[in-house]
């Protein structure tokens, strides 16, 4: 291991195709692109496409949420609200006010960004369970508003949307949506990987380790926590907008507490502080309930047992645990 060619000489550190392929930003992203490109060969029908598209949308949210939870170490039990607000912004602006879809999506992202920024500072001053409570409360309040203000949101019945139209092109059909979600996911992963390996990302990871330790070298920890919160919220909003157009409708449940819990579980299930772990978590927990439909009444029981089991036996998450196993196997 230590006698590899790239041990410590600086030029070798930068070069080397093999090395590049092992890096998440090059190899991992390439592999993900390959999987996304080849997966349709294995998707037998429209139902499978539907599951894949939903898995992709969840993965987008989770990659963003992982920046906050996994890297910056700040929990949020309210991120579904941002997903929901993005979806409703698209729904309301396109159907009630005749906005073009891309404009509505952007407006939703900006709105959520501003809202997240406004609440982030006081909320992220809190730590641990208090932070969990505050984000939970925020999410519940937003979902109650979406449920209640039916004059604009359609209330508990939700809101129907038209097909996504961009510059006169109507984007519909499984294959088109698979492409849209696949490309958006790749883009999100690329941005996330860039961020993690930048001064901003290092500041986030540092404050996760020790806030005082980060502050004494000049990291304004409050600022970076807010940043991670806003970035993850905006990513959730964009995914929400896409979801609303894809599904053709949005209901308040998508913004609710259980959806927030689902998102956090996906991140933790896959493996915190691992972008690809977040994707694995999102995909597994989107596909799993589909498989459990066979068990009908026992779905919640199995899901609950899986959540407890993973956290007890694979505390670091499925993907990270497997990756570590693979590494130690290669070493020996």
């Amino acid at each position: 291991m230590t006698s590899d060619v790239h041990a410590s000489a600086a030029p070798a550190r930068r070069g080397g195709l093999a090395r590049a392929l092992l890096r998440p930003r090059t190899g991992g992203l390439g592999l993900l692109a390959l999987v996304i490109a080849l997966l349709p060969l294995a998707l037998p029908n429209a139902y499978a496409y539907d599951v894949a598209i939903n898995a992709g949308l969840n993965a987008i949210v989770c990659v963003g949420l992982n920046l906050l939870i996994g890297y910056a170490g700040q929990i949020s039990l309210g991120h579904a609200a941002f997903f929901g607000l993005g979806a409703y912004a698209s729904g309301i602006l396109t159907t009630r006010y005749g906005w073009p879809a891309p404009g509505a999506l952007a407006a939703g992202a900006v709105l959520v960004g501003v809202l997240a920024f406004a609440v982030a500072r006081p909320v992220l001053r809190l730590k641990g369970h208090y932070l969990a409570m505050a984000t939970l409360g925020l999410g519940v309040i937003i979902s109650i508003v979406l449920n209640t203000e039916s004059w604009i949101t359609g209330g508990p019945d939700g809101l129907m949307l038209d097909d996504l139209t961009v510059l006169g092109w109507t984007l519909a059909g499984d294959h088109t949506w698979y492409g849209i979600v696949g490309v958006t996911l790749l883009l999100t992963v690329w941005l996330a990987l860039n961020l993690i390996d930048s001064p901003v990302g290092r500041a986030l990871r540092a404050l996760h380790g020790t806030e005082i330790g980060a502050q004494v070298v000049g990291v304004d920890t409050a600022h970076y926590k807010v940043l991670a919160f806003v970035v993850s919220a905006v990513i959730a909003a964009v995914a929400g907008s896409l979801f609303a157009h894809y599904a053709g409708m949005i209901t308040p449940g998508k913004a609710g507490f259980m959806k927030s819990v689902e998102l956090v579980t996906m991140v933790v299930f896959g493996g915190m502080a691992s972008t690809f772990g977040a994707i694995v978590g999102a995909v597994s927990l989107t596909v799993l309930p589909q498989l459990l439909v066979a068990f009908e009444d026992y779905e919640s029981i199995v899901l609950g047992l899986i959540m407890i089991g993973t956290m007890v036996f694979m505390r670091r998450g499925l993907f990270v645990t497997l990756l570590d196993l693979a590494k130690s196997w290669r070493r020996s």
Binding site: V268, F269, S300, L303, G304, L305, M307, I308, M311, V312
Partner: peptide, 12 residues
């Protein structure tokens, strides 16, 4: 996550 999992389990 563990206790939320437990709550889902108990509801199930």
């Amino acid at each position: 996550i563990i206790t939320i999992g437990a709550s889902i389990l108990l509801r199930g």
